[in-house]
Each structure stands twice: as structure tokens, then as C-alpha cells.
Computed example of a mutant assay.
Amino acid sequence: METDSDVELAVRPAPHPWLVLREHAHLVPMISLGGALGALGRWGLAQAMPHPAGAWAWATLWTNLGGAFLLGLLMSCVLTVWAHTRYVRPLLGVGVLGGFTTFSTAELDTRGLVAAGHPGEALAYVATSVALGLVAIMLGLGLGSALLRRGRPRRVTP
């Protein structure tokens, strides 16, 4: 059996979490600020659209779908326009959108539907959240890419 000399077969251990944190400590304030803003936005939406226990949680669904769409839109910009910036993705992606979206709350809402005797609705809620979340990300990426293409100056050939 022949081995490829360009491929390293040794498995490197993952760095200790404290070393990773120390290396990226300058990002922690940006992520924290963004997370606080995102969580406040999520709280505000939940206050504006309350639901009784064991009922469909529209605020959580709209929060997660909106956050997925915005994440797709943000990623299309981060991968092109802001590719060389250090703080945009940690502030907006990890912080704001990480604090805004809440799949853990969606799981608690699902548990509430099951506990209230609505397992079919619970399954539909999970399927809707995941499927539409993926669609929302793709729509955000597509819209962002289209807007970026539209905004580029066109070459005029003589």
C-alpha cells in the first residue's frame, strides 16, 4: 500500500478551550454586545406576540425564520464585501443573530405542545421550523448575492 506524501496522517489534538479563548479574547466584547442586542430583540418580539402554554409559538417561529434569513443575507456580504473585516461576523452573526434566534426555546415550545396533548402539532412545528429555516437561509443568501451583483459596476467593452 502506497501513501500520499502530501497528506498528513497524524491526528492533531484540539487546542485547549482556554487557549482558544485567549487567542480570540478581543472578539468577546463584540460578541457580548451583539448577543445582548439580539436577546433584547427576541424578548421584544416575544412580548409583542405572546402565546399560551401548549399553543403554537408564532413569535419563536418568526424569530428563528427572520434570524435565518438575516444570517443568509449577512453571510453573502461577509463572504464578499466584508471578507477582510474582523468584527462584523462576530458582532452581527454570532452576537446579534445568535442572541436573537432561539432554537432552544423552539424545543421548549415543542415540549409544551406535546405536554398539552398535541403531538401532531409538535411534529409540524419542528418540521416547519427546520424546513422553513433552511429555506430562509437560502433566500437570504440568494437575495444578498443578487443585490451584490446588481450593485457592482458593469464593465463596458469598447
Results as ranks from 00 to 15, higher is better:
V81W: 13
L139T: 04
L33R: 00
L45S: 05
L21P: 00
L19T: 09
V11C: 10
V81K: 14
S145K: 12
R149W: 09
A136F: 11
H26N: 03
A14F: 12
R149A: 15
G38C: 06
V11I: 12
G41Y: 03
T85I: 02
F103Q: 04
H16V: 01
T128F: 05
L21V: 12
R86K: 14
D109C: 01
T3K: 15
L92S: 01
A115I: 00
L148I: 11
S104F: 10
L92I: 08
H84L: 09
A59V: 08
G133D: 01
L97C: 04
G98C: 06
L70V: 01
H84S: 13
V11D: 09
A127P: 11
A83Y: 10
V11Y: 09
Y87K: 08
L97S: 02
T3W: 13
Y87S: 11
P17W: 06
A25T: 05
G67H: 01
A53C: 05
S104H: 08
T80Y: 10
L147G: 15
S5C: 08
D109I: 00
C77E: 04
L27F: 10
D6L: 14
L143N: 05
W18G: 11
E2D: 12
F100R: 00
F100I: 02
A116W: 02
A25H: 06
V114W: 12
G144Q: 02
L40A: 13
A25G: 03
E8Q: 14
V81E: 08
L141K: 09
V28L: 15
L97F: 10
T60C: 11
R154F: 08
G72T: 03
L113I: 03
L108D: 06
T102K: 03
A53W: 08
T110F: 06
R12Y: 11
L147C: 14
A131E: 02
G34Q: 00
G54N: 03
W62K: 07
L123Y: 07
G72D: 00
D6P: 06
A136Q: 05
L79F: 15
Y125V: 00
V135M: 13
E107Y: 11
P50E: 00
P119K: 02
G44Q: 07
L73S: 07
A146F: 14
L71M: 15
G151S: 13
P17M: 04
G93Y: 07
V114H: 05
V20H: 08
L33N: 01
S129G: 15
W82L: 07
L9G: 12
G35C: 09
